[in-house]
Amino acid sequence: MAAAGIRLAAPTRFAGLSNRAARIVLALAALLLLLACYSVIDAPGPRLASDAAGESGAAGGMTDRMLYENIVSDIRYGDNYYTATATELRRGHYPLRPFITFRLPALAVIQAWLPQWLSPLLLYALVAAVVLAWMVRLRTVFTGPLPTAMALLLLAGGLVACVQPMLLVFHEIWAGLLIALSLAIWRPGRWIESVSIGLAATLIRETAGLYLGLMFLLALVEGDRREALGWFIAATVLAVVVAFHAHAVAMVVRPLDTPSPGWMGMLGYGFFVKSLASATVLVAVPGAIAALLVTMGLYGWASWRDPTALRVLVTLTGYATLIGIFCRADTFYWVMLPAPLMLVGLVFVPCGLRDLIAAALDTRRITVTRVLR
């Protein structure tokens, strides 16, 4: 019987492993868990601003939240997005070079056009859409309603930052929710809606382009050329938008403007775990426990034998790698891109461990006897 009464409607990915393969996987999983817990010991934590909104900006004490709010306010009062952003970046002593220090304009322009009371409602509506989409996706995966309810609770634990109105100016929140929604509605042979929502995520935050690339590669590996073409077209649209964006930024940047210190943070998996904890319900547990739960969540996604699970696993692993290598301590909020779905994988862990341990302990042998007449 699966732990806590959790039963999948189909066997997990580890159910059919041979005895030897199961033992190897079990040993590797145990090793990775130990390494994950060890990685947080000396890992740097995110550099939190005084209002828990983002990086500590400059000498004047401007935070990222204040920066984005000021840009929206400037646009609302008639300024151009690029001149407003350049002005606010200089005021806060932020870098203006290269062009990727400027966010894509879509979110700020839309929020400036909308009444102030409407943006939080749209954010809550998007959160509700993500929850509903995953409820529909998971309700047939388990044999009873309890595991689905547990999965939705875990999903809620990853949405902690997404329901705080003070953070709605952060591009990563909107992009992360759209990625989660895109994954929820994806089906084999039904990908147009998923591609469209994934493209919308990238037009808000260009780092969501990693999601487009990973989905393109998975479609190619699985031999679905039409879907691969869809993701490729979306990536091409993003590339064109970024090219126009770079040109617009070049028109407002001055030769003496501050350059970025770069993004090769090389802070590792422990930093990813600590950053994820700061944006989710894991903020309430010790670092080693958070590392254990995050890694077990990835194991859970690997356990579910389903094309959607594979896409979620690849997406989460891709962003964990991106953040561990390129993120700086003051850009920890990149973790909001994978945060919504990271903990949901925990609901698959009991069945995954049950099947893996059973396969590892299975010592049955089949003896074939030939009867001669």
Score class of each variant (00 low, 15 high):
residue 114 L to P: 11
residue 257 D to A: 08
residue 260 S to F: 01
residue 227 E to Y: 09
residue 204 I to D: 04
residue 8 L to T: 08
residue 269 Y to N: 11
residue 361 L to S: 04
residue 307 P to N: 10
residue 366 I to F: 09
residue 163 V to W: 14
residue 26 L to P: 01
residue 248 A to Y: 09
residue 299 Y to E: 01
residue 304 W to N: 07
residue 199 L to P: 06
residue 63 T to E: 10
residue 231 W to H: 13
residue 61 G to W: 03
residue 46 P to A: 10
residue 224 D to T: 04
residue 232 F to K: 03
residue 282 L to T: 02
residue 308 T to N: 13
residue 89 L to V: 04
residue 55 E to A: 15
residue 174 W to L: 10
residue 31 L to R: 09
residue 53 A to V: 07
residue 307 P to Q: 10
residue 83 T to K: 09
residue 248 A to S: 08
residue 343 L to M: 01
residue 67 L to C: 11
residue 100 I to N: 07
residue 176 G to F: 02
residue 249 V to Y: 12
residue 203 L to D: 06
residue 115 P to C: 01
residue 346 L to F: 15
residue 278 S to K: 00
residue 219 A to K: 09
residue 66 M to F: 12
residue 77 Y to W: 13
residue 284 A to E: 15
residue 354 R to S: 04
residue 142 F to K: 04
residue 184 A to K: 00
residue 231 W to S: 13
residue 189 G to Q: 06
residue 108 A to K: 05
residue 128 A to H: 09
residue 198 G to C: 11
residue 368 V to C: 08
residue 330 D to C: 11
residue 169 V to C: 08
residue 147 P to W: 05
residue 162 C to Q: 12
residue 313 L to R: 01
residue 305 R to S: 12
residue 130 V to D: 12
residue 209 G to H: 10
residue 31 L to D: 14
residue 355 D to S: 02
residue 19 N to Q: 15
residue 280 T to G: 05
residue 372 L to S: 04
